[in-house]
Design a protein around this nucleic acid. Structure first.
Lengths: 165, 165
DNA sequence: CGCAGTTGATTTGTGCACAAATCAATTGTG
DNA sequence: CACAATTGATTTGTGCACAAATCAACTGCG
């Protein structure tokens, strides 16, 4: 008979860091995709381009690793970029299993055309440099811990009730 | 001919807050869904349950608003929970357009069965209370700013190059 | 009252996201 | 060299996530 919060608009979700993370990520994704709409790009597609602007060519798995995505997600993602004419895919000559991904001229040209995007996002989020660095550090920690930890929590200790995630 | 970072493993993605956000959100989502697998639940489904544990009944749009999800996403999400027998849906008598969602006994019972989940996540993320509060505050700000801002940035100021999002 | 406009829910279409299955190319080991 | 095991990419199946279209129920206004 504790934590009932009927009348006001508050819910248990309001204090859960993971929900805040989930919401914020969807909000940024949405904003990016809106800004990128004139080019018919989505946020994940934009991230592939950002990556390729700094690398002459990468295999599909290398792209997946850098974006921390599953190979099964990356494969069709790159295919859609190829369909739009921004990247090209060609089998590696040294290893016929690998498919190397690289920018087309159109994909390279986007680097200039999309140069305004980061500042658009910065303006929309209103995140100052200090908070940005703090967030970056915490988020990197969280991602690293979640990626390295065992698949299932050993749960050695007990659960002292009321943790807010 | 600037920011080339070939040899080492670093990429422009490493300093982008939005990418860190995107990665961390996917990592938490993945972890939750792994922990919830024995019950056949996903993270979004778990969030609906958390919400309903604090409310006797909510309309589909009310659930969507609380989770900040599109109605078109929420509708099938609730349907799947209904299929699994954790919630029930019934047309409101006062307004035949509304569908009220409420917990079944099985859904209510999950409140006890899943009581360990928050501490599992806390252990996996290794996020201490201070960083948790900091993250919560920053993420709420980001979400609020992205939600309230105009659909397209007016871009009144210029973009002083090298912003890291 | 009657009807235009709104609201609530669902459906449709596209694009992630991930796990598991599949298959070809390559590597290691006897 | 042969062949089992591994690696790289794709496919398949399920479940979000969102915008747009659809449709029924309700509301307001003349």
């Amino acid at each position: 008979m504790r934590d009932e919060n009927q009348a006001d608009g508050s819910t248990p979700l309001d204090t859960m860091v993971c929900f805040a993370l989930y919401s914020a990520a969807r909000a940024t994704n949405r904003r990016y995709t809106t800004i990128l709409a004139p080019w018919g790009l989505t946020y994940p597609q934009y991230l592939v381009l950002v990556l390729l602007w700094s690398r002459p060519s990468l295999s599909v798995t290398a792209v997946a690793e850098n974006l921390m995505l599953d190979a099964g997600t990356t494969s069709p993602l790159i295919r859609r970029l190829e369909t739009r004419g921004f990247v090209k895919r060609e089998r590696s000559v040294s290893d016929e299993r690998s498919v190397m991904v690289s920018l087309t001229d159109a994909g390279l040209a986007l680097r200039e055309e999309l140069a305004h995007v980061p500042s658009c996002i910065a303006e929309a989020t209103q995140l100052d440099l200090t908070d940005g660095k703090t967030a970056l550090s915490i988020l990197h920690d969280v991602t690293r811990n979640l990626s390295s930890a065992p698949a299932f929590a050993p749960a050695r200790g007990e659960h002292p009730d009321e943790r807010h995630n």
